[in-house]
Simulated assay, not measured.
Amino acid sequence: MNTEQLQVLVLFPASEEHKKMLESKAEMAEFTYSSPSTVTEEQVQQADVILGNPPTDMLRQSGKLKWLQLNSAGYDNYLGDGILSSDTILTNASGAYGLAISEYMICGLLMLYKKMPFYFDEQKQARWSDGGGVKSLYGATVLVIGFGDIGNEFARRAKAMGARIIGIRRRLDQKPDYVDELHTMDRLETLLPQADAVSLSIPASSETYHLMNEKRLALMKQDAVLLNVGRGSSVDSDALCRALNSGKLGGAYLDVTEPEPLPGDHPLWNANNIIITPHITGGFHLPETLERIASICAENLKAFTAGTAMKNVVRR
């Protein structure tokens, strides 16, 4: 592809080293650096390529955009009618977030297994209390729903700590060595009663909306833990509150909620044995995440200008 007239708009927080790497992949292109909060509609309209997540309303009038490379793994916000032209290539940053998010998942699970919410509350009251028995990942059965980059990285870490791993994905593929069983979603209700922990790292869709509803939460073990780092809509918030407050579940770690942001008066905040983080596990807090995003962008920019196959193309 002739890159002399190519206008590339970069919206993720690129360092000077990142800029050099990107510009080396399309030496004749013109690069503009901004951010989702400061970018102008004119900059979006003039771009042939956008690397990062622009405001969706600015894309509706963009007839020039050839390729949008998101800095997020999630892309559902960009699939609405009229946001992107049917000719625009859409790629995401799948593969950048598995390390960071899976560590949060391990952290949240172990905090609940070791009763850390109880001890934090006791610490604030200056009480020297023993919370009693705890659980271990060693020998636990972990049901991993969603076996992309994040699910795989979480499964690796849980397996290394001695867990039995059961994976659920849309289509059966070759089973990794660190997975004990691999199934498709039609087996979900059979597998839920076996699990000591259930993790969700799945995108929003009509199939995943309230996947964990009252019925399926009731199928889980009484002391099981639910982890959700995908989309808040995968879990029925009201049903989860009831399950936690009745003692039906052992706990929950949520980085995503429904609705989001979670209103201050929402009952989830005060549900029993819950840990909530404000959708931060997949951000730029871990420097390695940004390095991986920059590398994906650079690799795809090289492929785009050369007319070769690109990574992470979203099949719309």
Rank of each mutant, 00 (worst) to 15 (best):
Leu9Gln: 06
Glu30Gln: 15
Val39Phe: 02
Thr40Glu: 11
Thr40Leu: 07
Thr40His: 11
Glu41Phe: 00
Glu42Arg: 14
Asn53His: 01
Pro54Asn: 04
Arg60His: 10
Ser62Arg: 02
Leu68Asp: 03
Asp76Ala: 10
Leu79Ile: 06
Asp87Met: 03
Asn92His: 11
Ala93Asn: 13
Ile106Asn: 12
Leu109Gly: 09
Lys114Cys: 07
Lys115Trp: 05
Lys115Gln: 13
Pro117Gly: 02
Lys124Ala: 07
Gly131Asp: 09
Gly131Cys: 04
Gly132Met: 03
Ser136Glu: 15
Thr141Cys: 06
Val144Gln: 13
Val144Leu: 12
Asp149Ile: 07
Gly151Ile: 06
Ala155Pro: 11
Lys159Arg: 15
Lys159Met: 08
Met161Cys: 08
Ala163Glu: 08
Gly167Glu: 09
Arg169Ala: 12
Asp177Trp: 01
Asp180Lys: 06
Arg187Ala: 14
Thr190Gly: 13
Ser199Asp: 09
Ser201Leu: 07
Ser201His: 14
Glu207Gly: 04
Leu219Pro: 07
Gln222Tyr: 00
Gln222Lys: 15
Gly230Thr: 12
Gly232Met: 09
Val235Trp: 00
Asp236Thr: 09
Asp236Tyr: 02
Arg242Lys: 15
Arg242Glu: 01
Asn245Asp: 14
Asn245Lys: 02
Lys248Ser: 04
Gly250Tyr: 03
Asp255Cys: 03
Asp255Phe: 01
Leu262Tyr: 02
Pro263Phe: 04
Trp269Val: 03
Asn272Phe: 01
Thr277Leu: 11
Pro278Tyr: 03
Ala298His: 08
Thr305Gln: 06
Val313Trp: 00
Arg316Asn: 04
